[in-house]
C-alpha cells in the first residue's frame, strides 16, 4: 500500500471562499491517520482544517467535530450517507465534494 492517496477535493456553493477561493484541490492524503487506521472521511476533515484551510473561521466548515449543518458531503457524486459517512475509507482517485446549501431565490 502506498503512503499517500491522491484524491480531488472540491468546494462549491460559497465554501470555496474558505479555501483560498479555489474550487478544486488535488491533494495527497496520508494513507493512514495518526492512529494507524486507513484514512477515512473523518480524518480528511481534520486534514483539510489543519492543512488546506487558511481562513480562521473554522466553524464555517466544522462544528462539533463534524461538517457544519447545511453542508452536503458527496463521495463520488453520492451523498456521503449512502457511503458510510465519516467512516468511509478513501480510495485513490476519489472525488470528495463539499456543497454549501443555497437559500436565495
Amino acid at each position: 500500500m502506498s503512503d499517500s492517496i491522491p484524491i480531488t477535493v472540491e468546494f462549491t456553493g460559497g465554501l470555496e471562499i474558505l479555501f483560498a477561493n479555489e474550487r478544486q484541490h488535488k491533494i495527497s492524503l496520508p494513507a493512514r491517520s495518526g492512529d494507524g487506521n486507513p484514512s477515512n472521511i473523518a480524518y480528511l476533515l481534520q486534514y483539510l482544517v489543519d492543512n488546506l484551510m487558511k481562513d480562521q473561521r473554522k466553524d464555517m466548515f466544522i462544528m462539533e467535530d463534524n461538517v457544519r449543518p447545511g453542508i452536503l458531503v458527496l463521495i463520488n457524486d453520492a451523498d456521503w450517507e449512502l457511503e458510510g459517512e465519516e467512516n468511509y475509507e478513501l480510495q485513490p482517485g476519489d472525488n470528495i465534494v463539499f456543497v454549501s446549501t443555497l437559500h436565495g431565490g
Binding site: G14, D59, M63, R68, P69, G70, S100, H103, G104
Partner: peptide, 28 residues
C-alpha cells in the same frame, strides 16, 4: 431528510448581500 439541521443563521447569505446573476436564478 436531506438537511435534518438548519445551517447556522450567520452562514446564510441572501441575494441582496451576496448578489445573484439573473440567468442563474432564471435557469433554476
Amino acid at each position: 431528510c436531506v438537511f435534518p439541521k438548519p445551517p447556522p443563521a450567520d452562514s446564510v447569505v441572501s441575494c441582496a448581500d451576496g448578489g445573484i446573476i439573473g440567468p442563474v436564478v432564471g435557469t433554476m
